[in-house]
Design a protein around this nucleic acid. Structure first.
Lengths: 301, 301
DNA sequence: TAGTATTTTCTAATTTAGTGATAAGATTTT
DNA sequence: AAAATCTTATCACTAAATTAGAAAATACTA
């Protein structure tokens, strides 16, 4: 018996419907069926009556299922409570300095929420840095304990885990001719002017140049402005001074004049040769349970 | 967090010693360490103080570990209780007919104990059959629900799981010249007289003949007596009428005049070309949770 | 300084869980 | 009826996690 199976069981018991429960639980219906079967075969008795789907998709708890549901809920409650109390006792006055940089606004909020929700008793200090390169530097120098960064990481002293995987997307003014074109390729962009984020610390950005060379043009020559922050980039693109590239998970809701367009290869497949991944990182030698637990939280999102 | 980790944690907390706890828990010490680490890294705080083994191998619970221990025990209790009550409710008056045959006395006792301990409320009927071939027949014909048998199983309607793996061993009178020889090979036995269990239904026994042919002699010609049960075989071997072969897991404690000797290849490696495996089997199409749960119990042993 | 006891780390092998596609059972629609 | 639909179970494949065992690391003992 596993806690996962208990969660699945409670999910099905509440939905009384495998497919619907699977959606809520974020697993496939087949995985859900299998785990419920495993649970039943461990206990030795059916927990649900499927009745060979005799009547209208009737899934009902058996008598054994009914009594087991109560215990399953208790176990899950105790599971949560046990973690909470152990954390409260073990983490009194522990401090975590969490480094963030200016990109990825939505993501950092989500993660801070996740951190404080799961570890309400730690002293979480947010350290704002301007670029992800500075985050890496601060991690290595021990000024922060954990932080956001883009991949790849050059320094081997850091351990990172992908938080959000993205590809390169195009940032256009809504008024741009291409804003309505469904399949944009790199080649389509050969006559554009470009705004670029300072790339001194980002190896990914260099790969854009290579990709443009492959597509048959030299983008570097068309860069009209290099900026250091997203805000200025957004402004310049809005003004029509040029277009820009950025991670596909950027949140442009607050920039009504801009649109984020995915890129495609010539054959119509998504252009994902250049991966832009946002990751959470810590200095490997500073690993301790609390930091590893925070790292572990990202797989829930 | 997994129940397995909770069991391991309680084991270490009670032994306050990883290696000793590992033995009790029947896992390798490294697996134990890893699982405890994983648990600590999920909770986010250390549960044990290892103090970098500063003093005499001191393993102590941290404060967080102490509070977590109580919850862990509660969860494990609830885990057991939940299974018990679900079984009690779901398995009222269920009957299982368990087929056994005369070999493997010790093993069948162990398994019956395991069955009744885990499923105290089912009506377990032991059906004694004389050979494992009859057990297979009874399974197929539906006279029994589950039963012991030797592998391999010819009939594809049965599903089996190995309960105990063994090789062929030699059954000798204690007074026999070979009883003290450390490395017996098949070739050493070419001039012996043989007692043999009725092999009409056992494909494994035929492979003995092949193996003897390979070793350079014809055993079939030296068979002085074919018997149908172990008891008679033991008696005849005791009397010095011949020697016999049998599974290495036979229990000869009650036969003080007999010894069980492993066989070796000419190069000194153990002779395990012929596997004699005792398995638990059921008719595949009769699978139901209770039978699968009983099948599942054998991995605990 | 070598020897012993103990836990962690590393690696290869096995086992397990997950997914997507498909099958099977039963009802509803055409 | 036949086809479409809905639902759960099963299959085959892939990805991930778990295990044991060897070796490394750490500290105490003689």
């Amino acid at each position: 018996m596993e806690f996962k199976q208990l969660k699945y069981f409670v999910g099905v018991a509440e939905a009384l419907h495998f497919s619907n429960a699977a959606k809520k639980l974020y697993v496939s219906q087949s995985a859900l069926s299998q785990q419920i079967l495993l649970l039943e075969n461990e206990i030795g008795t059916a927990l649900f009556e499927r009745e060979k789907r005799t009547k209208q998709h009737k899934v009902a708890l058996t008598e054994a299922g009914t009594v087991f549901l109560m215990d399953a809920k208790k176990m899950l409650q105790l599971h949560e409570k046990s973690i909470e109390t152990a954390r409260r006792v073990g983490l009194r006055q522990e401090t975590i300095r969490f480094g963030i940089f200016k990109t990825a606004l939505k993501q950092r909020l989500e993660l801070i929420t996740l951190f404080t929700k799961n570890f309400p008793d730690i002293d979480l200090k947010i350290v704002e840095l301007s670029t992800y390169g500075e985050v890496q530097k601060a991690l290595i120098e021990g000024q922060i304990d954990i932080g956001f960064t883009f991949l790849p990481i050059q320094n081997h002293d850091l351990t990172a885990k992908i938080y959000q995987k993205g590809t390169l997307s195009l940032i256009l003014p809504q008024t741009h001719l291409f804003a309505k074109k469904p399949f944009l390729t790199l080649k389509d962009l050969q006559n554009e002017k470009w705004i670029e984020i300072d790339k001194s610390t980002n190896p990914v950005l260099e790969r854009i140049e290579w990709a443009c060379q492959e597509a048959g043009f030299n983008r570097a020559a068309s860069i009209v402005q290099v900026v250091t922050g997203l805000e200025l980039m957004y402004s310049l693109v809005s003004l029509g001074i040029g277009i820009a590239l950025g991670p596909s998970f950027l949140d442009l809701k607050k920039e009504p004049n801009l649109v984020l367009k995915p890129l495609f290869n010539a054959d119509g497949s998504p252009f994902n040769a250049i991966e832009v991944s946002l990751a959470l990182a810590y200095k490997t030698e500073h690993a301790r349970p609390l930091i590893l637990a925070l790292m572990g939280l990202i797989k829930e999102a």
